[in-house]
Amino acid sequence: MIERTTLERHQVWVYLAAIGLGLALGMAAPELAPVFEAVLWPVLGALLYATFTQVPLVHLGAALRDGRFVATVLGGNVLAVPLLVAALLPLVPDDPAVRLGVVLVLVVPCTDWFITFTHLARGDTARAIAVTPLILLAQLALLPGYVWLLVGGDVTAEVPLAHVATAFGALIVLPLALAWVTERRAEGHGRALIERLAWAPVPLLAAVVFLIAASQVGAVARALPLLADVSTAFVLFLAGTLVLGVALARIVGLPPRAGRTLTFSLGTRNSFVVLPLALALPPSWQAASIVIVVQSLVELFGMLAFLRLVPRLLPDR
């Protein structure tokens, strides 16, 4: 039987196949687009619930014990990464929806496959698990401010906040609360359910990108001319975070394994936590969700390079 780490290591090919199948079906049967859109929301909610159950929400206090590591991870994600995003924005097409998608996805640090890739690169998985809930709460609190600063108040004024707030509550707050309850119950009754749910994110994310491709095939076609420039910015972001993570680890004096964890924290982004917010936008803003899906694919290929480079740049002493 296939192991979960093997599935996670090759997940990019699963997603590419799902997108290709979704685009083909969307072009062959465009009348099914409303059905795909209706199914997308519960599947996305299930994906976020399964993902959040892998974040140790009930052990938030453990994240505060290693002050130097926590301060470096938060400082890198809260200050350095947004500055890098601001420097890259001039390379992105001057389209409000595209820029909103870029900012949404790049300022939000990852809380799921960040741990997987940290483990595969022989990083400090325990530190990654401990700091993850802190990153999750910080990103949700600071996201509106980053969007306002980097995209502009004139653009965000056009966004229907009521729709976004509804999506945030239904697809982030509710799964987050259910995940917390699940973790509390798992502490007293074993972790079999949590371990089974750990298999769910990859197939559920494949289902999500399939449904997006099938339902948004027109938006994908319209966004194609923009995707090359956006992908270039995403590749430069990965290169910048690689340099930033290694430099910060050496400046602060983190142990090599903790330094690798820091670098993966800066390089990985939380694409499908912000995806519901983009999907809640009006049709004129559909490019934002396409940009977010593209970023996740670019990042997954980038992580294959990170797995080779990060251990070499931060070798064990």
Rank of each mutant, 00 (worst) to 15 (best):
R191D: 12
V81E: 03
A280K: 00
D112W: 00
R260A: 07
V252S: 01
P82D: 08
T111A: 06
E8V: 07
L236F: 14
A17T: 14
F114Q: 02
A177E: 13
Y49K: 01
L254S: 01
Q139C: 06
R196Q: 13
A138D: 08
L136F: 10
A28K: 09
A80V: 14
S231H: 07
L91G: 13
F36I: 07
A80K: 04
F36T: 03
L134S: 05
L307V: 09
A165W: 11
D112M: 00
E8G: 10
L137S: 09
L83C: 13
L134P: 03
P30V: 15
D154S: 15
L47A: 12
A162P: 02
D112H: 02
L197S: 02
A186N: 07
L16S: 07
Y146R: 04
P56L: 11
P282V: 11
L64T: 14
L304N: 14
I129K: 04
L134V: 10
G145P: 04
M27V: 10
A29Y: 10
V274W: 03
L227N: 10
L193C: 15
Q11R: 13
A62E: 13
Q295F: 13
S289F: 07
V298F: 02
E31C: 10
T6L: 14
I290W: 00
V58M: 12
W113Q: 02
A179S: 04
A17V: 14
T5A: 15
V102W: 02
P225S: 08
